[in-house]
Design a protein around this nucleic acid. Sequence first.
DNA 1: TCAAAAATCAGGTATTTCCTGATTGAACAT
DNA 2: ATGTTCAATCAGGAAATACCTGATTTTTGA
Lengths: 223, 223
Amino acid sequence: MKEITVVLVDDHKLVRAGIRSLLESSDEIVVVGEASNGREALSLANQLNPNIIFLDLAMPELNGLETAEKLNHELPSIKSVILSMYTDTEYIIQALKSGASGYLLKDSAPGELKEAINTVMKDDIYISRAISSEVINNYILGRKKISQSDEIVNSREILTSRQRETLQLIAEGNSTKMIAEKLFISVKTVETHRAQLMKKLGIYDIAGLVRYAIKIGLIFPER
Amino acid sequence: MKEITVVLVDDHKLVRAGIRSLLESSDEIVVVGEASNGREALSLANQLNPNIIFLDLAMPELNGLETAEKLNHELPSIKSVILSMYTDTEYIIQALKSGASGYLLKDSAPGELKEAINTVMKDDIYISRAISSEVINNYILGRKKISQSDEIVNSREILTSRQRETLQLIAEGNSTKMIAEKLFISVKTVETHRAQLMKKLGIYDIAGLVRYAIKIGLIFPER
DNA sequence: TCAAAAATCAGGTATTTCCTGATTGAACAT
DNA sequence: ATGTTCAATCAGGAAATACCTGATTTTTGA
């Protein structure tokens, strides 16, 4: 049986070492290299030409998504799997858009590592079991069409301008009533915007929305 | 030689599994339990009474610092080591103030794990080598008072432990009812805690509380 | 040991959310 | 020119939650 070669990319040495230790308990898998950021990862990938590359989402210098995109462009034969702690639908969509073949949560059971490897080696897409979302399933189903006709990428997951406005006002601490007053619309409409943006983002509480808004730079933690 | 028993606490299963795999390559170390947040950690510590407990700094429900503090109070014989990706002095000082015996960066080499264990088992304090700082050493020696972020000092002095717990759970997106269930108290009590911490902080909306919690390092925006 | 602070809880009213709808107008392709 | 999709708007009504004003018990510090 042929060995599967893997490169690990994560900015935490201890985490890399741990995952390596887990992977190497299997005979078919060999970890041929490690990198601590995306830029290193690209040059390693060029040298080693591994079958699979695990990319941490959040890394300094060049993050996992950008790395996946460049890899997909330069070395399309290498499968990339994003390692992430976020369940937000937008990240997953972006990962798939970037050409990643997998999205694995850091909270996965160790067995999912090998499951992910087997899946992507078969040219399929692996998404952590814990992630359930119609949006994502729809996206995956639509993905092949998109890659074949290499045209317009789905804009459904993007918030509308009204939704974005509403999100910002929520994250800035406005109540539904205050938002309605500021936007000169009814409370009911604001409720609808909120419900719809929550559904799109897969985030169903105010605190999560605030953290999301901060993460994407819509607002800033200090004020 | 007697075995050293260890409990691992981190909210990412994959990371726990990795570190466990690294630790168990040593004969003297046995990982007797795992938990995914501070609250689970406390009850595990009670059951298993391990020698050492590794605590991730950034965890849902009850973070590493709060957990170390409670552990130090309830089970002072257990040594706690904070696992963290942050080199900020504030966190290290807070860790030591909370009674932790060690502060280990996630970017450490795997060998540092055992080094940390050996050090704290001798009743010494272990701080990751990568953290350069006379400041820290001075603190350990007790020579200087460290000036830290006013916000952090204030929150620790202003809020009671229950209020900080409540704040963390709110900022993590738990409803009042969920918080009550997690803390095993009534919804009414949670409402009181919330009202009192809001009054103390002068912040009367959830979004503001989330931003505040992020600002003082109680929770982390990227989770 | 005694007062202050922390932690616990309740009743009742006001407000807000949540769910299930609907309508209108604009953009767009056929 | 017409159907389709989507953004934006709004409502009714039940359920949940917040808010206000209390209170009691437990812990802690001086």
